[in-house]
């Protein structure tokens, strides 16, 4: 089956603290959570943000909320007070995560 952007299966919101970014990833359909858990691994997210200098990714699982919280280190080039990026907060990066290509869930 051909890959689909994560955007089709989930929504997201990013927040910053210093040089650390968190992205909450929330399944549109709660039943897709186990599929997303298998697809959107820490390693894949780290690779997806490698061009931004990400040094580590920690995924916190929240199955009761149909959600994950990704904490991504060193991705903000110093954070809002140091970055040269137009978006020093990294607020737009939730949509970079949603551009990640994943396998579609099995039809059910």
């Amino acid at each position: 089956m051909s890959a689909v952007p994560l955007y089709r299966l989930a929504h997201a919101r990013a927040g910053d603290k210093g040089n650390r970014l968190n992205i909450a990833l929330i399944a549109h359909r709660a039943e897709d959570w186990p599929h997303l858990a298998a697809q959107v691994t820490e390693a894949r997210v780290l690779a997806h943000f490698a061009h931004r200098g990400a040094s580590a990714v920690r995924r916190h699982d929240l199955p009761g909320l149909g959600a994950f919280n990704f904490v991504i280190e060193d991705v903000l080039q110093g954070g809002v007070n140091g970055a040269l990026n137009l978006d020093g907060h990294g607020k737009s990066l939730s949509f970079h995560l949603l551009a990640l290509e994943v396998e579609p869930p099995a039809p059910g």
């Binding site: 997201a12 919101r13 927040g15 650390r20 968190n22 929240l62 959600a67 919280n69």
Partner: peptide
């Protein structure tokens, strides 16, 4: 849900001056 997780790191230990909050 989006706001509950906004600017959160470890959802089992959100540190505030008043309490350590666990939303898991």
């Amino acid at each position: 849900t989006e706001q509950l997780l906004y600017e959160l790191h470890d959802p089992s230990a959100y540190l505030t001056p008043d309490v350590v909050l666990d939303i898991t």
